[in-house]
Lab assay of single mutants.
Amino acid sequence: NKASVVANQLIPINTALTLIMMKAEVVTPMGIPAEEIPKLVGMQVNRAVPLGTTLMPDMVKNYE
């Protein structure tokens, strides 16, 4: 099973992601793959992301 990106803390709306906000975890359903973490740094979330939430592509602005 591949790990996904999971919020390590509450991430407020429009916050630019940093490494300490994210962790890799095997979850179902899968979200953004953990190997994308370096690419996510500096990208903004378009909603508040609660602690423990799996990051999905539609939660990150301009994620492709």
Rank of each mutant, 00 (worst) to 15 (best):
N1M: 13
N1G: 15
N1P: 15
N1A: 15
N1S: 14
K2E: 15
K2T: 15
A3T: 09
A3E: 14
A3I: 04
A3P: 12
S4D: 00
S4N: 02
S4R: 02
V5A: 15
V5I: 14
V5E: 00
V6S: 05
V6N: 04
V6G: 02
A7F: 01
A7D: 00
A7T: 13
A7W: 00
N8C: 15
N8Q: 05
Q9K: 07
Q9D: 06
Q9T: 11
Q9P: 00
Q9C: 10
L10C: 14
L10N: 04
I11P: 00
I11Q: 00
P12I: 12
P12Y: 11
I13N: 13
I13G: 14
I13S: 13
N14E: 08
T15E: 10
T15V: 12
T15N: 10
T15P: 01
A16P: 10
A16R: 13
A16D: 06
A16M: 09
L17C: 02
L17M: 11
L17R: 00
L17D: 01
L17P: 01
T18F: 06
T18K: 12
T18R: 05
T18M: 04
L19Y: 05
L19C: 15
I20A: 03
I20F: 08
I20T: 13
M21R: 04
M21W: 04
M21Q: 05
M21F: 08
M21D: 11
M22A: 02
M22C: 11
M22I: 11
M22H: 00
M22V: 13
K23W: 08
A24T: 14
A24F: 15
A24H: 13
E25L: 04
E25F: 05
V26H: 09
V26G: 03
V26Y: 05
V27C: 13
V27G: 06
T28R: 02
T28Y: 04
T28V: 07
M30F: 07
M30P: 11
M30Y: 04
M30G: 05
M30K: 02
M30V: 12
M30I: 14
G31Y: 02
G31T: 01
G31K: 01
P33S: 11
P33A: 10
P33K: 07
P33N: 07
P33L: 10
P33C: 15
P33M: 07
A34C: 15
A34Y: 14
A34V: 10
E35K: 03
E35T: 06
E35L: 05
E36D: 13
E36I: 08
I37D: 00
I37R: 09
I37C: 07
P38N: 08
P38F: 08
P38E: 05
P38A: 13
P38W: 04
K39C: 15
K39M: 04
L40K: 00
L40P: 00
L40C: 05
V41Y: 11
V41M: 08
V41E: 07
V41K: 07
V41A: 11
G42H: 07
G42Q: 14
G42V: 01
M43K: 12
M43Q: 10
M43T: 09
Q44D: 13
Q44F: 06
Q44L: 12
V45N: 05
V45D: 01
V45F: 02
V45A: 06
V45R: 01
R47V: 12
R47K: 12
A48V: 11
A48K: 13
A48P: 05
A48W: 10
V49L: 12
V49A: 03
V49M: 05
V49P: 01
P50F: 12
P50I: 12
P50Y: 11
L51F: 10
L51E: 08
G52E: 06
T53K: 13
T53Y: 05
T53H: 11
T53E: 09
T53W: 13
T53I: 08
T54F: 02
T54I: 04
T54G: 04
L55V: 07
L55N: 00
M56C: 15
M56K: 09
P57A: 10
P57T: 10
P57W: 11
D58R: 04
D58Q: 08
M59T: 12
M59V: 07
M59Q: 08
M59C: 07
V60E: 00
V60G: 01
V60F: 02
V60L: 03
K61G: 12
K61A: 10
N62D: 05
N62C: 15
N62R: 09
N62Y: 09
N62Q: 08
N62T: 06
Y63P: 03
Y63S: 05
Y63N: 03
E64R: 10
E64W: 02
E64F: 03
E64L: 09
